[in-house]
């Protein structure tokens, strides 16, 4: 456990030192602060647009750190041969994987927490100063739930990125695979909905069978996306949230155990 904590700490510090990290954080803070002014372009409930920009910005921020920084930091260890320093110490390779994962999770949560606070402050300001006919109700509690699930989603993405980094020779390939899986995972629910609609009737049964297989096998990230529930104050079922959390944690576990297994067999030269 001590070894994992040590690697997590180093990863966190390394990530914080990355200039890109700071740049992304500043950029998203600016986006949150200006969201209210951009929203004025729309008509009707402009506060909804402010909320969409804020939550999407938060998602993008997390996405960048979870995929880009994760694949980059692991590849850097391999490229610069710093991994030799780690593996020469009494640290098992699986501990390296888990340590990296936790370090990246803490780093992402740290960035998301800063972003979330800036977003909430700006939203509160735009909410109080909004000149609308009907000031919409803002479900702050649902925002908190959506934020927790956004973190969980990012942990999921980090696990995916760590998994691909454990065997891909280049960070670019690992990034590409992780992004593709993110794209597919975010759309599984959408595709399912389209297939069950009228449009789906024109699609061949073979394709539908492949999709059904993919639906249960691939990581479903769309169920962790509670942005719409927070913005529109949609009802959330406690049992669904618990099951979704268990599903994500067990999938993350599967990815990390597999990554540890592959990484322990990998030749480092």
């Amino acid at each position: 456990m001590r070894q994992i904590t040590a690697i997590a700490k180093i990863t966190f510090k390394e990530g914080i030192r990355e200039r890109v990290f700071l740049g992304v954080l500043i950029f998203s803070a600016l986006a949150f602060l200006s969201s209210g002014f951009i929203a004025d372009l729309s008509i009707g409930n402009t506060l909804k647009v402010t909320q969409d920009i804020g939550l999407s910005g938060l998602s993008l921020l997390g996405l960048f750190i979870a995929i880009f920084l994760s694949t980059n930091l692991i590849a850097k260890d391999l490229d610069k041969k710093t991994i030799y320093l780690v593996v020469s110490k009494p640290i098992a390779r699986w501990q390296y994987i888990w340590g990296k994962f936790w370090g990246l999770c803490i780093l992402t949560s740290f960035a998301l927490a800063i972003g979330f606070i800036v977003f909430l402050v700006s939203l509160f300001y735009f909410w109080k100063t909004a000149k609308l006919v009907q000031i919409p109700h803002i479900a702050w509690d649902k925002y908190l739930i959506a934020f927790v699930f956004l973190n969980l989603k990012m942990f999921f993405l980090i696990a995916i990125a760590v998994f691909f980094s454990s065997f891909c020779s280049s960070s670019l390939i690992a990034f590409f695979f992780s992004f593709m899986l993110y794209f597919i995972g975010s759309n599984l629910q959408n595709v399912k909905m389209i297939l069950s609609s009228k449009v789906g009737e024109e699609i061949s049964p073979v394709l539908k069978t492949i999709f059904n297989f993919a639906y249960y096998f691939l990581p479903n990230l769309s169920i962790l996306d509670l942005k719409q529930a927070a913005v529109h104050n949609l009802p959330l079922k406690g049992i669904t949230l618990i099951l979704t959390s268990i599903y994500s944690l067990s999938y993350i576990g599967a990815l990390l155990f597999l990554a540890s297994f592959i990484f322990s067999k990998r030749e480092l030269n």
């Binding site: 729309s42 969409d52 759309n187 990230l221």
Partner: peptide, 14 residues
């Protein structure tokens, strides 16, 4: 449009 925008579909709607 729904597939391409993924989780950012509400923003595209705006």
């Amino acid at each position: 449009a729904l597939i391409l925008s993924g989780e950012f579909a509400p923003l595209m709607s705006d």
